[in-house]
């Protein structure tokens, strides 16, 4: 056996001739929604959130005697265009971080199964370092360490705060992606490597032509889940001075200076994130179910 051809793990080598496994029994009724599944779903959560907000607002309203001022929905509506712009910025940051993190993470994940021990160890170290660091700390590091502009061949490339924030958020994404990738590669049966080997494929060709295409399906659910988590983490950038939806909300609240606005305003923003992320998590669950059976 050519030792360098097969994927490497840090501790144990992949099980030779992995056996086909019996799939768990699935009851035929599993596809039908039960009553509690019909009653308690994502939209119930949203309704509960809004209802809760309404009760709180009523109380604060009554206490502050703000009845003669503009109504809360009117104010929310007034600020919506500004806040939406901020939210769009959050989405943009999440998409860019995800793109950078995914590309780097896939590369790092492949290096984690490299036949070269030094490469494998280094990739593992980088992955573990970023995976086990708080996102906020990484964000601060990027904001503080990356200069505001870099000169390359006399050309000044500016690095505004939001670009640094994108880089800061892409680091943990990279680390998670790297782990998912490693797991996906190792989950491909060893027979695939062997048959490619016996057909004369090099290790690189096997990776590109046989292994990586098969990991896409396995990665999709975790990848989407990671994206939802990342999107929900984007308000962190407001702490490091990027004008995202949270920063703008705070400004709006300061401008209005009304106590009874606090809860509805934040809940308003919360519901946007919910509406954006919930379908993603639903889709993830559906994909997981779809791919779970196909080994």
């Amino acid at each position: 056996m050519r030792a360098s051809f097969y994927p490497k793990t840090r501790s144990t080598p992949p099980v030779k001739g992995a056996l086909p496994v019996l799939l768990p029994y699935r009851s035929p009724q599993a596809t039908q929604l039960s009553l509690h599944e019909k009653l308690f779903n994502g939209w119930t959560v949203l309704a509960l959130m809004l209802g809760f907000a309404w009760i709180m607002v009523q109380q604060v309203w009554a206490q502050s005697g703000a009845a003669q001022q503009a109504s809360v929905p009117d104010i929310l509506l007034k600020w919506t265009p500004v806040l939406l712009k901020g939210f769009g910025f959050n989405v943009l940051i999440s998409i860019l971080s995800m793109a950078i993190g995914t590309v780097l993470g896939v590369g790092l994940g492949i290096l984690q199964v490299s036949p070269v021990t030094a490469t494998r160890r280094t990739a593992w170290l980088i992955t573990q370092f970023f995976r086990n660091s708080p996102w906020l700390v990484l964000l601060f590091y990027c904001i503080l360490l990356i200069p505001f502009e870099i000169s390359v061949f006399g050309l000044d490339i500016p690095f505004p705060g939001w670009v640094k924030a994108v880089i800061g958020l892409s680091l943990p994404v990279m680390a998670y992606m790297s782990e998912y990738m490693r797991g996906a590669i190792l989950s491909i049966p060893s027979g695939q490597w062997e048959s490619a080997d016996s057909l004369g494929f090099t290790r690189g060709q096997t990776m590109r032509e046989v292994i990586l295409p098969q990991t896409v399906k396995r990665l999709a659910p975790s990848w989407m889940n990671l994206y939802a988590v990342l999107t929900m983490a984007t308000p962190l950038v407001s702490i490091v001075g990027v004008s995202d939806v949270m920063t703008l909300t705070r400004s709006a609240l300061a401008a209005e200076s009304r106590v009874d606005l606090l809860i509805p305003m934040y809940l308003y923003i919360l519901s946007w994130f919910f509406i954006y992320c919930y379908p993603i998590s639903r889709l993830t669950v559906r994909l997981e179910r779809k791919f779970a059976v196909k080994l």
Partner: peptide, 8 residues
């Protein structure tokens, strides 16, 4: 091979 090992 016994397990075919076709590329799925």
């Amino acid at each position: 091979f016994q397990q075919y090992n076709l590329f799925p």
